[in-house]
Computed example of a mutant assay.
Amino acid sequence: MNMKRRDFIKWVTASAAVLGIGSWELARIKEVLASMNTTPIVWLQAAGCSGCTISFLNMVDDTINQSANGVSKVDQILINQIELDYHQDLMVASGNEAIQRLLDKTTGDGNFILIVEGAIPTAANGMYCVIGERNGQPWTAQQAVIDLGTKAKHIIAVGTCASSRGVSGAGTNMTQARSVEEVLGSSHVNKIYNLPGCPVHPYIIGETIVKLLAGDAITRDTKRRPLGSYNAKKHHDDSNCPLKGRSKTKKLGVCGNCFDEMGCKGKHDETKMSCYTRRWGTNWSNKRGCFGTGNMCIGCSSTAFPFAQIYQTKVDD
């Protein structure tokens, strides 16, 4: 794959600011990584829109790199430790060459990180989603997740579709799309890290990868979500909502007003992502989550997403 680790690290090292990695921690991280061989990362795309990939590619804000304490040093430490070996959208290789690359990097002792984006169709023996051919036969996303997931050291389910079916498994779900955890079963849940969001915030992806490579323990809730990014409090309940006390509106595109009367899902019990506290991409210094675009929270990190009604204007008294 003609994607340099230096390019990849431009995205992941920015998460050092989120992790709070300072100079005093760098020696410990360096010691951990010095004992590691290069850890391959393979990114499978199943039934989805590639939205989480696009989100991840937006983790390129130079202002964050410049202001984060110790980021340049983390860059030098990690640059030779991360290897993104397979991604269907980003790699130059295609067809048999790409699949062979994937197979070459996932053989042996299972020392690789598997990232899965999108829900996994299971109807018709998984034939609704084929990622390529193996030994001259269609290799479905379902079988690929089983084959690679059982061997991988860590599994990151990126986005709500991979974490809990999401949009790909909504409605009648004719393809019988399932989450990564449903496909692999309970025997592999200890190595699954669910990162829901539609899309998930890029820094949540980055910080999860960095922590796993550094050997840091990631505390998760019962749904396998990292508590650092999906805390026990509601996304933005009455005490956390940044729009608390603002005038309420029934018109989208009005930044700074409360959308409670339009069906804002910020108070939903399962809406816990920290997206509204973080910037998205470049030149978005004041754009935090959906609020920054003059929209409401649609609860995209909830296991109930997509809701039957995303927008639901309350009737005037």
Rank of each mutant, 00 (worst) to 15 (best):
M1Y: 12
R6Y: 06
R6D: 11
I9T: 14
W11T: 13
W11A: 15
A14V: 12
A14S: 11
V18Y: 02
G20I: 09
I21S: 00
I21G: 01
E25Q: 12
E25S: 13
L26K: 04
I29E: 00
K30L: 10
E31Y: 12
E31T: 15
M36I: 03
T39Y: 02
V42W: 01
A47C: 10
G48D: 11
C49V: 08
T53Q: 10
S55P: 11
L57W: 02
N58P: 01
D61G: 07
D61V: 05
I64P: 03
N65V: 12
Q66V: 10
N69A: 12
G70D: 12
V71E: 15
S72G: 08
K73Y: 09
L78S: 06
N80W: 10
Q81K: 15
D85S: 13
H87Q: 12
Q88L: 05
A98V: 04
Q100F: 07
Q100H: 10
L102E: 04
T107E: 14
F112P: 10
E117F: 08
G118R: 08
T122D: 01
T122M: 00
A123F: 02
A123Q: 06
A123H: 07
A124I: 00
N125D: 11
G126D: 05
G132W: 01
E133V: 08
Q137N: 05
T140P: 03
Q142P: 04
D147T: 08
K153G: 00
I155C: 06
G159A: 08
T160I: 12
A162M: 08
G166R: 07
S168T: 03
T172I: 13
T175H: 03
Q176T: 02
E182G: 02
E182P: 06
H188L: 09
K191V: 00
I192G: 06
Y193F: 15
P199W: 00
P202N: 05
K211T: 03
L212K: 02
D216T: 10
T219E: 08
R224Y: 02
A232E: 10
H235C: 11
S239F: 11
P242Y: 01
G245Q: 03
S247D: 08
S247H: 02
L252Y: 04
V254E: 10
V254Y: 05
F259V: 04
C264E: 09
K265T: 00
G266R: 05
E270R: 07
K272L: 13
K272E: 10
M273D: 13
Y276K: 06
T282R: 13
T282G: 03
N283I: 11
N286H: 05
K287T: 14
K287W: 00
G289M: 03
S301N: 14
S302L: 06
A304I: 05
A304N: 14
F305T: 03
F305I: 00
A308C: 04
Q309Y: 10
